[in-house]
């Protein structure tokens, strides 16, 4: 069905639903914990991370281990490229160890796709975030989290709030939600953090929290990506919080049973207040747990379609 998993953009509703159903099957009826299964025994999965990550790398590692695969974690910043080896040479060397799957995180957009075009046949590539382009497994775990809470995607009102300019997560979420049938997607951000022509993605743009949050069912907060910001996009973090931070007062403008999500790591007091992040409407930690089942599903689907 799929050899690589690079973006949510090219996937059909059926393909997305297959992934969500498979993720559901890794959940136990009681307790919801994920049991270890022997599905990928004998396979070797390489986490190739060119950029720092804790949550994504560890949930990928745990997902691979719950599937009984062998896992290698390679942190390139601290490795051979520092010694002058080219990306493709690094790749050839790891391939020579007979691996079956690469999980790639890279600071450049398109890196995972580039690698997928140069790996040996039979090796699968999963994009674990490339530059500003896409973070499709995060988007899948977000729609999985939404599907476990809400009845359907069609009638949902979803607001994505914050640093859309640098967010690969938001882009992947918007594509996945649109494909699954969500009509009302809003993005809320100051002008300097909205990508040009964001409306072409099929979303409505707001520059005011009070207008944008009106009666929404899902609020997805994005992290302010300070490390990617060059130039004066914001006056100060304090002012950003005053205008765009999610506070209990602003949350009250959304639907009564609205759900608060955040891909993490959260900046408390910058994009979200602690009361909201730790409140009963927040599913931020459930998102992390769901990430394991979703990544297990994607890995098994790729490994089973050789």
């Amino acid at each position: 069905m799929m050899q690589h998993f690079l973006t949510t953009e090219s996937l059909s509703k059926d393909q997305l639903t297959t992934i969500l159903d498979a993720a559901e099957s890794f959940y136990n009826i009681d307790g919801g914990h994920v049991k270890k299964v022997p599905l990928l025994r004998g396979k070797t999965i390489v986490n190739l991370f060119f950029e720092a990550s804790t949550r994504t790398r560890t949930t990928f590692e745990l997902a691979a281990k719950r599937l009984s695969a062998d896992v290698l974690n390679i942190n390139i910043n601290a490795s051979a490229t520092v010694k002058g080896e080219s990306l493709l040479d690094t790749l050839r060397n790891i391939e020579a160890m007979n691996v079956d799957m690469f999980v790639i995180r890279h600071q450049d957009s398109g890196a995972a796709e580039f690698i997928s075009k140069h790996v040996a046949p039979g090796i699968s590539v999963i994009n674990a975030g490339d530059g500003r382009h896409a973070h499709p497994t995060q988007a899948m775990l977000d729609v999985f989290t939404i599907r476990r809470i809400k009845d359907n995607f069609e009638n949902l009102k979803v607001a994505i709030v914050g640093d859309l300019l640098h967010s690969r997560v938001a882009r992947s979420q918007i594509h996945a939600l649109r494909t699954l049938g969500t009509q009302d997607i809003r993005v809320i951000a100051p002008n300097t953090l909205l990508p040009a022509c964001v409306e072409t993605l099929g979303v409505q743009a707001f520059q005011n929290m009070e207008e944008g949050l009106d009666n929404v069912d899902i609020i997805i907060m994005l992290r302010l990506q300070k490390e990617r910001m060059q130039g004066a996009l914001l006056p100060s973090e304090h002012e950003y919080f005053n205008l765009f931070g999610l506070t209990p007062e602003r949350l009250a403008l959304a639907a009564k049973d609205a759900t608060v999500m955040h891909p993490g790591p959260i900046n408390r007091g910058v994009e979200i207040s602690s009361e909201v992040a730790d409140g009963i409407q927040s599913v931020i930690l459930q998102q992390v747990s769901n990430g394991i089942a979703v990544r297990m599903a994607i890995m098994s689907i790729l490994a089973g379609s050789e």
Binding site: A22, S25, I29, V37, I301, A303, S305
Partner: peptide, 20 residues
């Protein structure tokens, strides 16, 4: 489904029910 020996030939059954 997660214990089958023909997984790499047939792929993942998309409708696996949880064991109980």
């Amino acid at each position: 489904s997660f214990y089958r020996d023909d997984f790499s030939r047939l792929g993942l059954n998309p409708q696996v029910k949880p064991s109980q």
